[in-house]
Design a protein around this nucleic acid. Structure first.
Length: 533
RNA sequence: GUCCCCUUCGUCUAGCGGUCUAGGAUGUCACCCUUUCACGGUGAAGACACGGGUUCAAGUCCCGUAGGGGACGCCA
């Protein structure tokens, strides 16, 4: 009929957005965007587990998706700080609407009840009064006898006639206060179901993989497998792109599609993201949520770029590209069926690349957003932005573009994550911290002379800041007077400026530090030398 | 245990029967740049899990074996 597709990402708000979930969302998004302008990426919320779901988690997940650039065309979205829903015509749904993209709400609207009633009446589902204990015994028995561990329920009807009597019996029990679950009756299932998976090709799923599974909890809430099918069908989802761990669920879902006479969508089961131990990435691998990575100073743009390359490859072998660029060339055929290890080292490299590409203003904004209470950030950028009308000679210099660029590179070229900026800024504005590494340098005979002369020269200066030229001038004087060069000159000096023998280029960092501060630091270092003597 | 999926450098991957003495990226190492560190530049080492087939020809197709992973919930 038309070439538009409808795909969905259906998170469950029981935790923060996991990188695996983010990638699933990304591929769904990219697929929709790559097909046509009118294709839709829908966000549905699977919050049937009332105990574990929360509004806070939902909000956090939506926020993370937004910052990654994955915004839904339809369904649940975040408007400022409010969770809202919009339908396929872009109409905002209010609380009285009979439509919703949240399964908890859809359950209240009896959307699932109608379908479950249909199954019950036709013997395709049944009330099951098996207790937890009874189920446990069945399971342990099955384990001991090494047979397949499927639950067999005595409440399962054998045929339509049987279903009628069983339903009657059930109604009676329910009226007495018993709370049954509802199981799907697999009695009429085909022996084997075959899906043509877009990633894996033909996958055969034998029906004996599953027993009569629960489709509605005893508390009245239908479960994931059921809601998922009903919603995908009712929302006209054309392609289901999800993680491989759902492959075995597909069998159950296929049975439901069939029982309910729904059209079956196309499936694409994407490979899993693994930790370094090659096991499914989970909390015990450390940082796994998008929020964790952002807190650690990763840029959302870098994270999403990295995720995109996990199980997918750019047709031109590009490594660095935006989500928009990816959407232009995205093709499901390039999805890899093998699982991928999440390589933090490559992410780190990629993040560094993104940081280097940032304009000074963007860098400033990103840093401020990341650590809003660090006033060194503004100090740093104010220094770089000082107008050329300033009376101070170094401020005039600092405003020239070339100098500004080299100075900003102190920050930009040496950090791979936003958090690392803190350390650099501390070197410029913070308290001097003399590292253990410096001790050896300070024990050199020349060190004391160099520092004393350095302080003397600084004291003559009346300007607030030193220019690069002025520093080089002093540096030459030290060379002559103290008869030092190379390591013996630069290392003690560097310790006197940043507290360690390695790190920033002196002529770049010195023009950023107040002369008075330089004096304080040098005196502090000199004191430790004298103490050691 | 049962069923399902997967298998190219350490890692992410290219490869859709001949153009593969297997390409790129990252990581590692070396050298250059640099009076330090980093950045940058150049280069090196590094892989088709194994065994059978099919074919004139197999990393590429088929079958086994081994290894890894996933699912087996009134979680999603």
């Amino acid at each position: 009929m038309n070439n538009n597709v409808r795909v969905r990402f259906a998170p469950s708000p029981t935790g923060h957005l996991h990188v695996g979930g983010a990638r699933t969302a990304l591929f769904n998004y990219l697929f929709a965007k790559s097909i046509s302008k009118d294709s839709k990426f829908i966000l549905r919320v699977e919050d049937t587990d009332k105990e574990r779901s929360s509004q806070e988690f939902l909000k956090s997940q939506l926020k993370d998706l937004n910052s990654l650039g994955i915004t839904p065309d339809e369904g649940v979205f975040l408007d400022g700080d409010d969770i809202k829903e919009k339908d396929d015509n872009n109409n905002i749904l209010d609380s009285k609407s009979t439509k919703s993209y949240k399964q908890s709400k859809r359950s209240e609207l009896n959307i699932y009840k109608e379908k479950i009633d249909f199954l019950l009446q036709n013997g395709l589902a049944y009330y099951c009064f098996l207790t937890d204990e009874e189920i446990d015994t069945q399971k342990t028995l099955a384990k001991e006898s090494k047979s397949t561990q499927q639950i067999t329920s005595p409440y399962r009807p054998k045929n339509l006639e049987d279903a009628k009597t069983k339903n009657l019996e059930a109604t009676e029990k329910i009226s007495k206060g018993l709370k049954p679950s509802i199981r799907f009756n697999t009695i009429s299932a085909k022996p084997e179901y075959i899906i043509k998976d877009l990633v894996r090709g033909e996958v055969k799923l034998p029906s004996n993989m599953v027993g009569d599974f629960v489709i509605q909890r005893s508390n009245g809430m239908p479960v994931y497998n059921f809601c998922c099918v009903v919603d995908d069908a009712l929302m006209n989802i054309t392609h289901v792109l999800r993680a491989e761990e759902h492959l075995s669920n597909t069998l159950r879902q296929l049975m439901i599609y069939e029982a309910l006479n729904f059209t079956i969508p196309q499936f694409a089961h994407m490979s899993l993201i693994l930790g370094e131990d090659k096991k499914k990435l989970s909390k015990r691998h450390g940082a796994t949520s998008v929020e964790d990575y952002i807190k650690e100073g990763y840029l959302p743009e870098a994270l999403i770029n990295f995720l995109c390359l996990l199980g997918w490859s750019h047709p031109e072998s590009k490594e660095i590209f935006s989500i928009q660029e990816a959407a232009k060339v995205f093709d499901l055929k390039r999805l890899n069926s093998a699982p991928a290890v999440f390589d933090t080292k490559k992410l780190l490299w990629m993040n560094g690349e993104y940081i280097k590409k940032l304009s000074p203003d963007d860098l400033k904004n990103k840093l401020n957003k990341h650590s809003p209470n660090n006033n060194h950030i503004d100090q740093f950028f104010t220094l770089l932005n000082t107008t050329s009308g300033s009376a101070d000679v170094s401020q005039r210099k600092a405003s020239s573009n070339t100098l500004r660029n080299t100075q900003i590179s102190i920050l930009q070229n040496s950090i791979k994550t936003l958090v690392e900026a803190k350390g650099i800024l501390n070197l410029i504005f913070g308290q001097l911290n003399i590292t253990d590494e410096s001790n050896e340098v300070l024990s050199w005979n020349e060190a004391k002379d160099v520092l004393e002369f350095w302080i003397k020269q600084l004291n003559i200066k009346t300007e607030i800041y030193l220019t690069e030229e002025e520093f080089i001038d002093i540096q030459d004087k030290i060379k002559q007077t103290c008869k030092v060069k190379g390591k013996t000159l630069f290392m003690p000096l560097r310790v006197a400026v940043i507290g360690k023998p390695h790190g920033a280029e002196l002529k770049e960092i010195i023009p950023l530090i107040l002369v008075s501060n330089l004096i304080n630091r040098a005196e502090q270092v000199l004191k430790t030398i004298n103490k050691a003597d």
